[in-house]
Amino acid sequence: MSAFAVLSRPLAASNAPSLLSNVGVIARRELRDAIRSRWFLLYTLAFVVLGLAVSFVSAAGTGGTGLSGFGRTTAGLINLVLLVVPLMALTAGAASIASDRERGMLAYLLAQPVTRAEVVLGKYLGLALSLFASLSLGLGTCAVILAWKGVRTSPSSIVWLAGLSMLLALGMLSLGFLISVLARKASVAVGTAIFVWLSLVFVSDLALMAGAVALRLRIERLFALSCANPLQVFKMWSLHAVDASLDVLGPAGLYATEEYGRWLHAIFAGCMIVWIVVPLAAAALVLSRRSPL
């Protein structure tokens, strides 16, 4: 009984406004703080600039032949998202509750007639909205530049990419929240987040590659294992959505297409939802059981 009962028990008097309005207020607060913060500005700027660089380079790569297609244009953007978005989301999530706790803000918030779940959800939504703003600014500008430079990718691909990046950001934000709730200090939380980022971006893929070669992993295993990494899920999903085929990814991609076909969207969506919901729920659970100070 438990934790969820505890979470949903209102701390305020019986005439307290609905859960949603409390969450909304906290979310707006968080969003305002995020947008005013230098980190957000820096990340957004970095994302836009890098996105523009990728767009320009890939448009220049076709050498003005007027050709376009699925090449390094989309691949470059996917790569950029894989690098930058998890970093943004993980550190933003990790910093949120831990730094509030350090500044005494968390105690202040919890002294208000709100539940801890409302605080977590509100802060999560606020940060998610700020990430959404940042991502759509970045990818939107890229799309405009690409269109202007004569790249003729269908608009659905950029919309898919933006949507899936957002899902990736949500998952990473959840993970960041979990780190944030677990860590004692904000610096530790951010450090852990960067370590996790490094693991997800580089270490796990490299380890999987080495494992695949050394242990002669069968391709179905390889595919299943890479579905455990949200970054790989994002990548495969984007390729599947943009190119309608995973066969660029060689035997394992071909296997996935042949074996799962139209279920791939559902499989990838399932993986992403797990990565969004589970860490966030865990974070709320941990926060509700621990002393906020």
């Binding site: 996917i78 790569n79 971006v201 893929d205 060689g250």
Partner: peptide, 16 residues
């Protein structure tokens, strides 16, 4: 190792 194409477009590829 054609199976490693699964890791195309990933930052790990760039690292390598």
């Amino acid at each position: 190792q054609p199976a490693l194409r699964l890791f195309l477009f990933s930052p790990a590829q760039q690292a390598i």
